[in-house]
């Protein structure tokens, strides 16, 4: 399963290096990667490679974040997007873009994104409290989403010039267009650190299968796990959003896709879920380059268009299961 997903990621990465306004045959891609010269090589290494690598790492971060959050709150509907973390990260990044005078290539952007995500995750756990069901968590997430959405709109309103506002508006839609190795260098270490934090709690997700009390009686420090996941989500999702804008639903879809094959064990699905997330985002980002349109369709739009019906379908299945029970 894991090996098959890794292979899929490699294949999609290859496709992603070939696809674009100019189709490059595999031979050109390989020559470019091997340090060859010429236009094709420049397209591959300077334009497409950073984009592909970002799609893989950000997708993996989002897939892992979804699986980790689901493990922590013990519910397959949990998703960072639904809990307001990306909205908060986007708000903080938008503030920096609009008023900070920072360029989209400064370290201030991922730092703001992570701070925003951390505030929202901390608020969520603070408001929802311990031992709350998914309904309370979702309602708290809904409130945070609405709040940070409105705050972001306010930033757009007050943005010093209309061009900045337009830039932010497009950035918010979520895209990997024109991203470079600088972005990867800025966000990569934070995403790696976030992933380590999220993965470090694998044993806790497993123990939490039996509820917080039993997990605690089995020696799990539930409060510390919560903090580690909050920090991991803030680092990973915050850094990812500060590079791409809001890309939603990968964290919901990826764990679900792998659960049937990898089993329900919340620790065993972490790696497959990260790989599935990487594959999903790389596929979505390749797809937007293949759709003929005057301006490139935003990747975040594609993931939401696919993710939202999927989410509704999940709810429908849960409703049916409850009616059947």
């Amino acid at each position: 399963m894991t090996a098959a997903l890794a292979l899929l990621c490699i294949l999609l990465a290859g496709l992603s290096l070939m696809a674009g306004p100019v189709w490059l045959p595999p031979a050109d891609v390989l020559r470019g990667l091997a340090g060859g010269e010429g236009t094709a090589a420049i397209i591959v290494t300077d334009i497409r490679l950073p984009r592909t690598l970002l799609a893989l790492t950000i997708g993996a971060t989002l897939g892992l974040a979804g699986a980790a959050l689901q493990g922590l709150v013990r519910n397959p509907l949990a998703e960072p997007t639904l809990f307001g973390a990306p909205a908060a990260a986007a708000f903080a990044s938008a503030v920096v873009l609009a008023f900070g005078g920072a360029s989209a290539l400064s370290l201030a952007l991922p730092l703001a994104g992570m701070a925003g995500a951390f505030v929202s995750v901390a608020l969520l756990f603070l408001v929802a409290g311990q031992r709350t069901g998914i309904i309370v968590l979702l309602l708290a997430g809904l409130a945070l989403n609405a709040f940070f959405g409105a705050a972001t709109a306010l930033v757009l309103n007050l943005a010093p010039n209309p061009f900045a506002a337009l830039e932010i508006a497009f950035w918010l839609l979520g895209s990997l267009e024109d991203r470079s190795f600088v972005h990867l260098a800025l966000a990569g270490p934070f995403m790696a650190l976030g992933a380590l934090l999220l993965a470090s709690q694998a044993k806790a997700y497993r123990a939490l299968t039996l509820g917080e009390e039993v997990a605690a009686s089995l020696g799990t420090d539930v409060a510390r796990s919560r903090l580690a996941v909050a920090a991991g989500l803030a680092l990973g999702v915050g850094a990812a959003v500060s590079v791409t804008g809001a890309i939603g639903f990968i964290g919901l879809v990826a764990p679900h896709l792998v659960r049937r094959a990898a089993g329900s064990d919340p620790a065993r699905i972490l790696l497959p879920s990260a790989l599935a997330g990487a594959a999903l985002l790389t596929a979505a980002d390749t797809l937007v380059r293949l759709v003929p349109a005057t301006t490139e369709i935003k990747t975040g739009v594609v993931t939401a268009l696919v993710g939202v019906p999927f989410f509704l379908w999940r709810i429908l299945r849960i409703r049916r299961a409850e009616e059947g029970a």
Binding site: R74, A207, T209, L210, G211, V214, L218
Partner: peptide, 26 residues
């Protein structure tokens, strides 16, 4: 100390063996 609460939660569809194996986590 092993603790068996009044109402047992089970979030994921683990196998019987895996659930019992959770008792070995300590």
């Amino acid at each position: 100390i092993a603790y068996l609460p009044q109402r047992s939660e089970l979030a994921w569809a683990l196998s019987v063996r895996d659930v019992v194996l959770l008792g070995r986590l300590p």
